[in-house]
Nucleic acid binder design. Structure first.
Lengths: 224, 224
DNA sequence: CATTTTTTCGAGCGATCGCTCGAAAAATTG
DNA sequence: CAATTTTTCGAGCGATCGCTCGAAAAAATG
């Protein structure tokens, strides 16, 4: 299936969070819970992305979200749990969005590679604060949460590697394509959200960015 | 001049720090000061890169370096000053290493581009913990220090852009080379230190990495 | 509307933070 | 070796941290 932005909306992601943790979340009524959770998560991503997750105090979060200190703890039992909840949704969204390409795309390695690049950039654009949070903060996370982030990154790289390997086998990509290529396409994809402010400042359109990364990637492996 | 690893050693960088801040550093004798400063900086980079600069407490730093709390403040007057001192050395090292290529390299745009890539990777390898600190932590820095980091990044990109523009003018690079190319070579260079652990785990040699990034970059702009 | 349940609140707890400062230890000097 | 300077030390200060919990407010119930 092609990329569906609706499954990456704030609403959808918070609803999923609520569902995944309905046993530990103290608020019973979904309409109450969803409304507040969205406010909390929005504020948490914003504060974290500006000062770092560690530097975001729960008093900051309380003030920014308008939810009292005690109120916050109806949604998570520790600051680390909040981190894990957000991280879980990001990694799930990555897998959901990249795992099943349209049939006609999956059959064609070059199309598959182009599709992965296109979908990844669109997904990160849609979930910008989530990705900024999950992968720029990752190195300061506790061990278990850091592992979640790196596993998710390696999964993306594995999808790229799969498409490229298939292309090499079928002859549309050169046999001497560098084995480092999948690892190096990854930072090209990540730059869209890591340096988002720079590209915005320069007026770079998402479509231009996608096509440039696609061109660089294909030029590095295409058999001409 | 070509890349000189000696100017990027711990000794050289700490000596430079000492010189730059000799008026605010309370320890008079250089032999005392340099020895301790090296220990402090080494520990600070290590702790910061594992837990984040914000999360590194000065008590952690005191314990890891073997220098007492009070002793630390003979070298900086605040935690932010320590940050700024390290950042200053990194940005100076970038400018020093990349600003003047050998004459025969500067005259040839393709050689210049290859040289910038080679030199950047070698420099970041030599100063690995410094770069990890300066650019992975940057987004959580106070405004002024964050600006230092981004300015340094833009300087590197400007060097790449200069070499590529010269190549386009002289016809060795295609006229329709993407204007995004310099911005996108940057994350390829950064991946060497951002994901250093991954490349080490996979046994990727620095020379292989350099050559692959060079090949991808040239393939994206070469006139064939 | 009285009662019960659910949600929200924020002052307060112990721990830890960046940082200071007077005294001890070490090195230098005459 | 006594006197002086330089270096090192760590307990303690006020502020802030993550987190708790009993009470108030709001909503649902009968």
């Amino acid at each position: 299936m092609s990329f569906d932005a609706r499954t990456c909306s704030l609403d959808a992601l918070c609803a999923s969070m609520l569902d995944r943790h309905r046993d530990t979340i103290g608020v019973q009524k979904p309409e109450f819970a969803l409304r507040k959770l969205k406010v909390i998560v929005t504020a948490a991503l914003d504060l974290s992305n500006r000062k770092g997750f560690q530097a975001m105090s729960l008093r900051d979060l309380s003030l920014a979200s308008g939810v009292s200190m005690g109120g916050l703890y109806a949604y998570f039992d520790s600051k680390t749990t909040l981190l894990k909840m957000i991280l879980t949704e990001v990694t799930a969204a990555v897998k959901r969005s990249l795992s099943d390409p349209p049939a006609e795309v999956a059959a064609d390695p070059r199309a598959h590679l182009l599709w992965l690049i296109d979908t990844h950039v669109r997904m990160t654009e849609e979930m910008l604060p989530w990705f900024t949070f999950a992968f720029m903060e990752a190195k300061n996370f506790p061990a278990e949460e850091r592992r979640m982030a790196t596993d998710s990154e390696e999964l993306t790289e594995a999808y790229l590697a799969g498409a490229i390997a298939a292309g090499v086998r079928s002859g549309v990509f050169r046999a001497d394509t560098s084995p480092l290529l999948p690892a190096l396409i990854k930072p090209l994809l990540q730059d869209w959200y890591v340096k988002r402010a720079k590209y915005r400042r320069r007026g770079v359109k998402m479509q231009t960015y996608i096509e440039t990364v696609q061109a660089i990637s294909v030029a590095a492996c295409d058999a001409h």
